[in-house]
Design a protein around this nucleic acid. Sequence first.
DNA 1: TATGGATTGGAATTATTATTTCATATTGCT
DNA 2: AGCAATATGAAATAATAATTCCAATCCATA
Lengths: 305, 305
Amino acid sequence: MPGQTETSVRETRIMLQTGLSRATMDEQVPRDFETLRATILDRRESLPKRIAQIAAYALDNPDDIAFGTAASIAASAGVQPSTLIRFAQQLGFDGFTSLQQVFRERLRERNSSYDERLQALRAKAEGGAGHRAIFDGFIAAASTSLNDISRTLDDAHLEEAISLLAKAQTIYVLAKRRSYPVATYIAYALGKLKIRNQLIESAAGLNAEMVGFATPADAVIAISFSPYAPATIEEARTISEQGVPIVAITDSSFSPLAQFARVWFEVAEADFAGFRSLSATMALAMALTVGVGEKRRDVGRKRKA
Amino acid sequence: MPGQTETSVRETRIMLQTGLSRATMDEQVPRDFETLRATILDRRESLPKRIAQIAAYALDNPDDIAFGTAASIAASAGVQPSTLIRFAQQLGFDGFTSLQQVFRERLRERNSSYDERLQALRAKAEGGAGHRAIFDGFIAAASTSLNDISRTLDDAHLEEAISLLAKAQTIYVLAKRRSYPVATYIAYALGKLKIRNQLIESAAGLNAEMVGFATPADAVIAISFSPYAPATIEEARTISEQGVPIVAITDSSFSPLAQFARVWFEVAEADFAGFRSLSATMALAMALTVGVGEKRRDVGRKRKA
DNA sequence: TATGGATTGGAATTATTATTTCATATTGCT
DNA sequence: AGCAATATGAAATAATAATTCCAATCCATA
């Protein structure tokens, strides 16, 4: 019997079961994972027990659905393979295989290098594709930056920077403009960890004096990206000439900050709509801060013992 | 004939072909994608033409290998299925299926829900696993938060908030403590976009006066997460009583901020080592800011036309 | 340019996996 | 409680896909 007849017989049966016309059916089949997810959550209540069981499993373990065989998935979820297929059919798919496609597509999508997605989103936003596109762009930029930094960060530098900062009496935090939010976050976190710190703010114009108090027993976290705020560079220079060690977060080895720094990190943030992400810098800043907190605790313990 | 015999016959044949003992073979089979990649690049020169062809294809289209069938992959790469299997065997696998596992594992790894990774990292960091673990933890927390928000953000709310803010004469930005970095970033970005704004700072203790200037023609972006800074809530209340519309970013519908807000966003940030990520909030903040910038430009253009 | 070995193509075979079927159990309703 | 409709389990079957086999081809070397 030719495949075509086979298929149409199957379709007829499903249509009878669900009471839907073919056209309606097609419209309702969720093609992408998010729609599928929503559909499942929507119908969760009205699903039979076993079907609900596999539905829950599917949302909890999407990767297993993407890669497993009907039998293996059914076993993990504690149902029969046939139930899995019924589940797929209830959702409007014509079998497990086509349901699985959606789960596979999801992995492909997610994995398609964020760089590519970012390109696409930039183009989309340029074309005036609404505010959601802008939002997605910032999400993508942040994700890209996180991926990048987690690939490129050098563990040894991290250790070195943390040791250096852990020894400091006071940690000075130096950043302006775009980097300023990071500085305020560091200051907040250091404060919560009871680590003495001083944010070098520009408001009152007393920076020079503030900087003057730092000694070689202290340390500085300085953050600046191109175009480097002249004030940051100036203050970094002064403070390094006083012999205060500097940990710098910046964006290239040509950065003037890198020259003054005892340890420096190169962080490449992706940008979108003219604004660079801060997510990678933030993550690094937090790691430094909490790392210093940990280190001090450890040292304290050792001294007591 | 039982499967076991079948298998051992196959193994013997391969061993003869490659001239390796079983023990040596096992050591050489690349288990993870990176090793496999290196192995392929290493042997690239010495591979026969068709095998080299599929090798190149595999490195260029790893996703296809992960998802395709031997036949479909072979067709895309322009070779016979049998060649694909020979390729796998040359690398020490016992067939296409086990080669494919490596490509699938790669996708799983990359994609392994950040939540799970976060759990693992938290445990690791607790156990004092060094500073890299802390860093990875913050990266994972940030990624999780980004994933979450991009799933849950409501487009309609975004549009509404942007329209509201775009109409404002002055945008006031209100946030303390942990949220303060976001506020400074918003203020920075609004400034760069030439949008009049006022950061409500606490330094000089003049908040009450500042807040008093706001009128219903203005708008507020208020950001606060549990435990809500009392000052933020107080100022939000006052300002909303003056009839100034508020766009709030907060963490639950029970948040006091949500009560005063015209539009509010629920942002669930993952935490690590006691500090919550800010990445999702930052992304949303940037989308709002740039969205307002776009909207004003559009409106300006329309007026001229 | 002949010859042996390696490589390749394509069909045949075998294994695996999805799907269907049907008997049985459960549920909801009168 | 009894009936019909629905849901479930388990095995049989159909479909699909991986693997093997063998003949044909290519390539290096004498």
